Simulated scan of single mutants.
Amino acid sequence: MNLSGAVIWLRQAAEALAFIMVLSVLLPLLFGSAAGIPAGRVLTLVGSTVILQANGAFTGAGLGMEPWEILVIMTLVALGAVLGIFAICDTFALTSKRVRTFLEKAEKSMQKFPWVSKYGAVSLIVLPALPVIGLYASVVIAWILRWNRFESVLFITIGWIGAVIFVLLLAFGFISLVF
Rank of each mutant, 00 (worst) to 15 (best):
residue 96 S to V: 08
residue 108 K to L: 12
residue 128 P to H: 02
residue 122 V to E: 07
residue 133 I to V: 01
residue 130 L to W: 01
residue 120 G to R: 02
residue 131 P to I: 03
residue 127 L to A: 05
residue 102 F to L: 07
residue 125 I to P: 00
residue 95 T to S: 06
residue 101 T to E: 13
residue 130 L to N: 03
residue 125 I to K: 00
residue 110 M to G: 07
residue 122 V to T: 09
residue 97 K to S: 14
residue 113 F to Q: 04
residue 103 L to D: 06
residue 97 K to L: 14
residue 126 V to E: 00
residue 113 F to Y: 09
residue 112 K to Q: 07
residue 98 R to A: 15
residue 132 V to P: 03
residue 107 E to T: 14
residue 96 S to Y: 06
residue 113 F to G: 01
residue 124 L to I: 05
residue 121 A to E: 06
residue 117 S to H: 14
residue 133 I to D: 00
residue 114 P to V: 12
residue 97 K to V: 12
residue 107 E to W: 12
residue 98 R to W: 15
residue 109 S to R: 12
residue 122 V to Y: 08
residue 124 L to K: 00
residue 116 V to N: 02
residue 127 L to M: 06
residue 122 V to Q: 08
residue 126 V to A: 02
residue 112 K to H: 08
residue 123 S to L: 08
residue 132 V to R: 04
residue 105 K to Q: 08
residue 115 W to M: 14
residue 116 V to K: 01
residue 133 I to A: 00
residue 131 P to A: 05
residue 97 K to W: 13
residue 98 R to S: 14
residue 115 W to P: 09
residue 133 I to C: 02
residue 97 K to N: 13
residue 106 A to F: 05
residue 124 L to D: 02
residue 129 A to P: 01
residue 116 V to L: 10
residue 95 T to N: 04
residue 128 P to N: 02
residue 110 M to R: 05
residue 104 E to A: 13
residue 97 K to T: 15
residue 113 F to T: 08
residue 115 W to T: 11
residue 112 K to C: 09
residue 132 V to G: 03
residue 97 K to C: 12
residue 115 W to Y: 13
residue 132 V to A: 06
residue 108 K to R: 12
residue 126 V to S: 02
residue 106 A to T: 08
residue 111 Q to L: 13
residue 112 K to Y: 07
residue 122 V to H: 07
residue 120 G to N: 01
residue 101 T to C: 09
residue 109 S to K: 11
residue 104 E to C: 14
residue 98 R to G: 12
residue 121 A to V: 09
residue 127 L to F: 04
residue 126 V to R: 01
residue 123 S to M: 09
residue 111 Q to V: 10
residue 112 K to S: 07
residue 100 R to D: 11
residue 102 F to Y: 06
residue 96 S to C: 10
residue 98 R to M: 15
residue 110 M to F: 07
residue 99 V to D: 05
residue 116 V to M: 05
residue 130 L to F: 08
residue 109 S to G: 08
residue 108 K to A: 09
residue 128 P to F: 00
residue 120 G to W: 00
residue 131 P to W: 03
residue 124 L to R: 00
